[in-house]
Design a protein around this nucleic acid. Structure first.
Lengths: 351, 351
DNA sequence: ACTAAATATGCTCGTATAGAGCATATTGGA
DNA sequence: TCCAATATGCTCTATACGAGCATATTTAGT
């Protein structure tokens, strides 16, 4: 690790004093892959940029844009990411942040262990979806196509009651290894908490936990590819969202979780908005990401009161009613408040 | 990246259709290092486990426990981490979570670029500091020794007024490249927001931002090692906290940030507590991490009201006054509330 | 031109919660 | 025995937030 980079330390003769292993352990090199979940909101629909390819063994076609990290070319992970996203899709990224580093074998792994080891570092990027302008590759697809149970904009999604809940109940009742049930929370409780069953409130930030639960329960198609579910058992199930290749759906789930969390304490919505917008458009964007939360009047009070926006002076007509005042992001808020964001609190248990 | 692991896709002949580069880009392999910020609270002092070694060029001796990740031995990053932490320090980790993946060259880099490229993945682990029991290596050291400006338990730290504020002011007034001042926030504003100057409130979560600012301003010793500050300029400055080797102080800053944030919405304090404790002890632990926040009565109301603890029935005498009731962590709270934590809100601007 | 529907916007009220202070209980030690 | 120190309970107040009512302006339809 870094130690060696600084180049100052001499190898200590006494092994137990310092690192347990020899330096040449670092010779066990792996490839570094960068995956980008590039998110926008287009016509009130949250979309991610995906690339389509040949179907894999479970019929998954979509991947997130990805590329290798070459430390010789790029000084930082982020600059490497920006560079090849630009090359590959024609998109110039604005806001980007690191999500998580995944390295599990076992997940999305070859049965034979001969493939090179790769660690993938997931990134989240937020951008405006100004049409498909300049996109040389890839397409925008609603993230709710991959996670239909996350879309609460028209109330509680049918798919939870119809497909998910009964199957998770069955999974919870299936006998399980004793070791699992002891340390961690029981399956039934996990399912209840994740999906807001039995009157438990829905937590929109638990996107990753929900997907992981479905994966563990063998309900995500990817579980079949990874050999967690017998093929026979797999075929007669309803599709719970579009699968993606490799573990990209997990990375996208992480991205959605992060976006939903961050929007509340950082002004990241504005990365998704044009320069000028109405408060209603802003609200629809927030709701596209989080689900319906606030009623209009309170939302106005919230964003104006927090100093997040300022009127441009113009109005937008042809809205179907009274013209709406146009606003812009008030950047000064970054200099004023320590954690400005659209502080919508938890919804009152729309179970 | 993962694509190759799944082993299903054939290389597409048309390069622009998919990845911009050839698969052999992944041959550009790097070493993976795991760094652990292992945190405990010992006698009301937040401590991190560090290992001492030979002084480097700036006299830094301490490193965080670290080791290589060998994907052939370990299925996940976390299991690799747990394994060598056990081997190296004798400590069995309980709670652990991934922090961030660092790969910057330039930071903590050799002047000559011949050293192997290493990506380091930082982890945060929380544990009880039951003496030095069973520690085969390493020592516990207060994290405020590395970050004295973070310790607000006895009011605003002197070091901010005396050493940091004037130097940051000078740095802010120094001429800067136009490119920097345009896009990002001005230096003076960054300093004000990070360190709560000019009446701006102190945000205890901005630990990493503050350290990065000091580093950029050439006030962290590590900046001298990385060649960001001329040696002459460096020698006549007060030490702003103990430096660490490589970029370990940055990783520790990330760990503190995460701990301070997470304690508010997840019951992670209890990872640091013994099984039974008084509410005053719990409060002291929280304050060791965050700084003094709540007055006693409200803290009691908070944790009891949230259902985070339950009385054991016993009391602890010899507290110097009326015996205190003993409490234990109420695990059921995990099944009840979506985000249980010690929800202390921002302090009322103790500037 | 007039009306209905749709949207934008302002105001108020009740409840929940957090910050702060006062009061009381129970101990150890001078 | 009394005081100092700690533990614990209660109340008051300001604020934030969810929710509903009321009004202003526009478009679409007759």
């Amino acid at each position: 690790m870094n130690m060696e980079l600084s180049g100052r330390r001499k190898p200590t003769p006494d092994k137990s004093q310092r690192a347990p292993d020899d330096e040449q352990d670092y010779e066990i090199s792996v490839g570094i892959g960068l995956n980008a979940a590039i998110v926008a909101v287009s016509e009130n629909e949250p979309v991610a940029l995906v690339v389509r390819g040949e179907p894999d063994s479970i019929g998954a076609t979509d991947v997130l844009p990805y590329g290798p990290f070459n430390p010789r070319e790029h000084r930082t992970l982020e600059s490497g990411l920006r560079s090849w996203v630009q090359d590959q899709t024609g998109l110039e990224l604005g806001y980007a942040e690191q999500l998580y580093t995944f390295a599990d074998r076992g997940r999305h792994a070859d049965p034979d262990d001969t493939s090179p080891h790769v660690v993938s570092i997931g990134y989240l990027a937020l951008t405006q979806a100004i049409g498909h302008h300049g996109l040389t590759n890839g397409l925008w697809r609603s993230w709710y196509q991959y996670f239909p149970w996350e879309d609460w904009r028209r109330g509680r999604p049918e798919i939870i009651t119809r497909d998910i809940e009964p199957r998770l109940k069955a999974w919870a009742e299936r006998p399980t290894a004793a070791s699992t049930s002891q340390t961690s929370i029981a399956r039934a409780d996990r399912a209840r908490i994740c999906f807001g069953l039995n009157g438990t409130s829905w937590d929109e930030e638990k996107v990753l936990e929900r997907f992981e639960l479905l994966y563990e329960a063998g309900l995500a198609d990817e579980a079949a590819r990874d050999g967690r579910v017998a093929a026979r058992e797999w075929t007669d199930r309803p599709k719970l969202g579009l699968p993606m290749q490799a573990d990209h759906r997990r990375i996208l789930a992480t991205a959605i979780s992060r976006t939903r969390a961050k929007i509340k304490y950082r002004p990241v919505v504005f990365e998704l908005m044009p320069d000028e917008f109405t408060l209603y458009e802003l609200q629809k964007t927030v709701e596209a990401i989080l689900g319906p939360h606030l009623h209009k009047q309170n939302f106005r009070r919230l964003v104006e009161g927090a100093g997040l926006v300022e009127p441009t002076g113009d109005v937008k007509t042809r809205t179907g009613g009274r013209p709406a005042k146009l606003f812009r992001f008030r950047r000064e808020v970054l200099l004023e408040r320590p954690a400005p964001g659209v502080r919508v609190s938890a919804p009152p248990s729309r179970a």
